[in-house]
Simulated scan of single mutants.
Amino acid sequence: MDASQAIHRIIVCTLCRDPATGTRTGEDLCADLRSRLSADSEMALLDYAVEGIACMAGCARPLTVAFQAAGKASYLFGPIDRQTDAVELLEFAKLYASLADGWCNSGQRPAGLADKTLARIPGSNSAAGVGI
């Protein structure tokens, strides 16, 4: 899907290096997520684009992955293991698409991502969480 037309975006750092191997795995994760999204008919309807970007300043917790949509809270997760966390990222993608303002608490997120949430940034049109 063309990123400029997608409602939801999954953004993956392409410069993060795997701490064990030193290899950059972001592009591989992008390809894997795109493949999984298109192979699942339910996921294909969620209107996601997967993009690589050359740094999200999560270097202390590589690999970082963000979720973003207009008017919704954005999320940054890390460290992400390309092979073991892809399923959890897709579970979160389903949840995120279902939330009008993108706001959810840690108990609603897939268990494998609960301790990997680096940031939740309120959407520009959202008052969710104000006063917490």
Rank of each mutant, 00 (worst) to 15 (best):
Pro62Arg: 01
Met1Arg: 14
Gly112Met: 06
Ile10Trp: 13
Leu89Met: 05
Ser124Gly: 12
Leu15Cys: 11
Lys94Arg: 15
Ile80Pro: 04
Tyr75Arg: 02
Ala73Gly: 05
Asn125Cys: 12
Cys16Tyr: 06
Lys94Asp: 03
Leu63Cys: 04
Asp101Leu: 15
Gly112Thr: 08
Leu118Ser: 03
Thr25Lys: 09
Asp40Ala: 07
Met56Leu: 15
Tyr48Gly: 02
Ala31Gly: 10
Gly22Met: 12
Ser38Glu: 13
Ile53Ser: 13
Ile80Leu: 04
Arg9Tyr: 02
Ala54Gln: 05
Trp103Ala: 12
Leu89Ile: 00
Glu88Asn: 05
Lys94Ser: 12
Val12Thr: 04
Ala39Glu: 04
Ser106Lys: 09
Ala57Trp: 01
Asp18Arg: 06
Pro122Asn: 09
Ala57Phe: 01
Cys55Tyr: 05
Gln83Pro: 00
Ile53Asp: 02
Phe77Val: 02
Gly123His: 01
Leu90Thr: 02
Arg109Asn: 07
Thr117Val: 14
Thr84Arg: 10
Ala60Ile: 04
Glu88Gln: 09
Asp40Asn: 13
Leu46Phe: 09
Asp28Met: 08
Arg120Gly: 05
Arg36Thr: 02
Ile132Asp: 09
Asp85Leu: 10
Gly129Pro: 08
Lys72Gly: 01
Lys94Trp: 01
Ile10Met: 15
Ala73His: 12
Ala39Thr: 05
Ile121Arg: 07
Pro19Gly: 10
Arg61Asp: 12
Ser74Gln: 12
Gly129Lys: 06
Pro19Val: 04
Lys72Arg: 15
Ala114Thr: 09
Ala93Ser: 10
Ser38Met: 12
Ile7Trp: 00
Gly102Ala: 13
Met43Cys: 12
Val12Ser: 00
Lys72Tyr: 11
Ala20Ser: 14
Ile132Asn: 06
Cys16Trp: 03
Met56Cys: 00
Asp101Ser: 13
Ala66Val: 05
Ala60Gln: 06
Leu46Asn: 01
Leu90Asp: 02
Ser38His: 11
Gly123Phe: 14
Pro79Arg: 03
Met1Glu: 13
Ile121Gln: 10
Ser4Met: 14
Gly123Ser: 02
Arg34Phe: 00
Ala97Trp: 08
Ala119Ile: 07
Glu27Cys: 04
Gln108Glu: 15
Thr14Phe: 07
Leu33Asn: 06
Gly22Tyr: 02
Lys116Gly: 09
Ser124Glu: 14
Arg120Phe: 07
Ser4Leu: 14
Ser38Arg: 13
Cys13Asp: 08
Pro79Cys: 01
Arg109Trp: 02
Leu63His: 07
Phe67Leu: 01
Gln108Ile: 02
Val50Arg: 07
Cys16Gln: 06
